[in-house]
């Protein structure tokens, strides 16, 4: 039995498969019906300074092999998060990582400091800083596409917590490696990539975009190659672990990310199709490793033959 345990900021996760923020709620939606102990990490729905109602409706539309969403970070806000959600995390059989979103750098740090201060028992394993949401006016992509702002945000959050700190990157930039290096310079323990890809669907009969916001974030198998390429490039640009995500539906998809250089992966949209998928994938990845003679996460990276 081999154990593929990603180490981020000096802490170990049980396995390489996480469930992505926004696709698994706070875990409680699934807890009664599924055994979550096989999940490596549960990334919560983003938590913000104040409650947010979310964007106008409809918020999602299916595209060829994809899902375009504009949820708008609908969430209960940091105070209700602490009161209503945090107690449940303590008893959850998997690591829970709070995904944090904000309008500006100082606010990210303030939310993280608040969560840290209100979680003395350490129910939260760490934080994932969302500087990549394509569906909000402030923070999100606007911030995450600016390397110096990403570095500053990461540094501010770094001073607010000693727990593992992951910065979630957007693919909607000219050079994602620049942003990744900025996060690393700011003190991130890992980067996760990719968040959704900006997209639009037009209802030609109504002659307007289906989503009232116009654009949304594309996820699902349609974006798999975009994510794999991002991880391939980012993992060669930074020395911190890279968490790969975007369009993972099958174990083979996950292994593509691991071979590309990811130290862990996240399953997102696939949870909607099959909420049991993360647990099954973790077991299948381990089986693949045994068959391939891989006994560490780095072993996956070296499986990839040089191209060209």
């Amino acid at each position: 039995m081999i154990a593929l345990r990603p180490v981020i900021g000096g802490r170990e996760l049980a396995n390489v498969v996480g469930v992505a923020s926004g696709t698994f709620g706070y875990g409680s939606e699934y807890e009664r019906h599924l055994d979550l102990s096989g999940i490596g990490a549960l990334y919560t729905k983003a938590v913000t300074m104040h409650p947010r109602p979310g964007n106008d409706v409809p918020r999602i539309v299916e595209t060829p092999a994809g899902l375009l969403n504009s949820i708008g970070l609908a969430n209960v806000g940091r105070e209700r998060f602490v009161v209503e959600k945090l107690p449940g995390f303590a008893s959850m059989p998997c690591a829970v990582i709070a995904n944090v979103a904000a309008d500006f750098p100082e606010e990210y740090a303030e939310v993280v400091a608040y969560l840290d201060a209100n979680d003395p028992t350490g129910a939260l394993w760490g934080y994932e800083i969302n500087v990549s949401c394509p569906n909000v006016k402030a923070g999100g992509v606007a911030l995450g596409s600016n390397a110096s702002e990403v570095e500053r945000t990461t540094r501010l959050v770094r001073t607010a917590t000693d727990r593992p700190l992951i910065v979630k990157l957007t693919p909607n930039v000219t050079d994602i490696t620049q942003i990744a290096r900025a996060a690393e310079a700011g003190g991130a323990d890992a980067v996760s990539c990719i968040n959704t890809v900006v997209g639009m669907v037009i209802d030609t009969a109504r002659r307007r975009p289906v989503l009232p916001a116009g654009t949304g974030g594309l996820s699902g198998p349609a974006i798999l190659p975009i994510g794999v390429a991002a991880v391939y490039r980012v993992s060669r640009a930074v020395s911190i672990p890279v968490i790969g995500m975007g369009g993972i539906m099958t174990t083979d998809d996950a292994i593509q990310y691991l071979m590309a250089g990811a130290s862990a992966i996240q399953v997102g949209t696939a949870n909607f199709v099959d909420p049991r998928i993360a647990t099954r994938m973790a077991a299948e990845i381990e089986r693949f490793a045994i068959d391939a003679g891989v006994d560490s996460i780095e072993g996956f990276h070296s499986l990839l033959e040089p191209s060209g």
Binding site: K45, G54, R59, P275
Partner: peptide
Amino acid sequence: EQTMGCAVGACMGCAIHLTGVERY
């Protein structure tokens, strides 16, 4: 009816507008 993502309350995708304080 509304287009649904997770169907279990996790994704916030299938919102509709309500009257009153809770907007969705």
